[in-house]
């Protein structure tokens, strides 16, 4: 039964092929559709007109690639608008939030006692990622907006010098950025697994609007979100960036166009997310920056924002200073 079915299918395919071949030979103008028809067809289908070249550069075999037009639309419209809205929108939100709510203070005041939050390795890695990200972001934004914002201000020669250095920096800083992401993942993933506590934290809006402090471990849901945006978003941005850094080593031009689209949109969204992160880590919250400078945060700050983590840390500290079990204090009996 199945054999007969296959035979029937084969016969059908052969006859269809025959009809197609016939139709081809009957077509006008020496058997092929005309250039303009073919171009229109490929433009509508988004396909390439390809052939064979006798020069060593086989990329040259692509005669016309209509996808270039879509990429142009993406770069000049989609990316510029997405980026503009995301970055300016987030800046607006941050400014508005600061104007309305002001700085989040330590409710119970500075205690004067500190507790270690991030060790030297964690801080150094954070700043390696952060500093490369800022330069990557600025040089990236320059490629999308610089032509309209900076070029008229500083003139073509200075703008080219700046953009050229930006490009070099962008290419090379990709490596410390990616290394930092890997180290970040290894250092912090264990404290960033989402759990039921995060739902409660998100429901309470992180306490931003109601004023309370929902319970949180070492990282609250907001920080976990930033962590995953950085690790996953940054990972995809890095991967798509390497495709562009080594042209034609992984994929052809269509793949490079796609990589650029992914790279651009995700990078814009990450810049927006990082603006919020930078705000809340510096101006937005009293006592927060210490975690990434000295690594030691005020005890009251920690108790308010990371109650469960402080409990854990103090339990650990008590355990460390407590006498081993079985040892009795002198004069106890």
């Amino acid at each position: 039964m199945t054999k007969r079915l296959i035979v029937a299918l084969l016969a059908l395919m052969l006859s269809a092929g025959g009809v197609a071949a016939q139709a081809q030979t009957q077509a006008p103008a020496r058997g092929q559709i005309s250039a303009e028809e073919m171009e229109l067809q490929r433009a509508l289908q988004g396909g390439r007109i390809e052939g064979r070249v006798s020069i060593p550069d086989q990329k040259a075999a692509s005669l016309i690639q209509p996808e270039g037009r879509e990429w142009r639309q993406f770069h000049n419209r989609t990316l510029a608008w997405t980026g503009g809205i995301a970055v300016l929108g987030m800046l607006g939100i941050v400014v508005l939030f600061y104007a309305i709510k002001g700085r989040v203070r330590i409710a119970s005041g500075w205690s004067g006692r500190t507790v270690l939050r991030f060790n030297l390795l964690e801080r150094a890695n954070h700043w390696m990622v952060a500093s490369s990200f800022i330069i990557l972001a600025l040089s990236g934004l320059n490629l999308t907006f610089g032509r309209y914002l900076l070029l008229p201000l500083i003139g073509p020669e200075a703008f080219t010098t700046l953009s050229l250095w930006g490009k070099v920096a962008h290419n090379y800083l990709a490596f410390p950025f990616t290394l930092g992401l890997v180290v970040m993942l290894l250092l912090w993933v264990k404290d960033n697994i989402p759990n039921r506590l995060d739902l409660a934290w998100l429901k309470a809006g992180g306490g931003f609007f109601t004023g309370g402090h929902p319970a949180a471990g070492r990282f609250n849901a907001g920080q976990k979100l930033i962590f995953w945006i950085t690790v996953l978003g940054g990972g995809i941005v890095a991967a798509s960036g390497y495709v562009l850094l080594f042209p034609f080593s992984v994929t052809d031009i269509a793949g490079q166009q796609l990589s650029h689209m992914v790279h651009g949109v995700l990078a814009m969204l990450m810049i927006a997310a990082m603006l919020a992160h930078i705000y809340i880590g510096t101006l937005g919250m009293e006592g927060a920056l210490d975690a990434m400078t000295t690594g030691r945060v005020d005890y009251n700050w920690a108790r308010e924002h990371h109650s469960l983590w402080v409990e854990e840390e103090t339990a650990k500290a008590r355990g460390a200073v407590a006498p081993p079990p079985g040892i009795k204090a002198a004069g106890a009996d």
Partner: peptide, 19 residues
């Protein structure tokens, strides 16, 4: 194009229909 201004970013290559 002005080669003294070009930074070799490759964008024109992505956009050009004719390679």
């Amino acid at each position: 194009h002005d080669k003294d201004l070009c930074i070799g970013c490759g964008y024109c290559f992505y956009a050009c229909p004719f390679g």
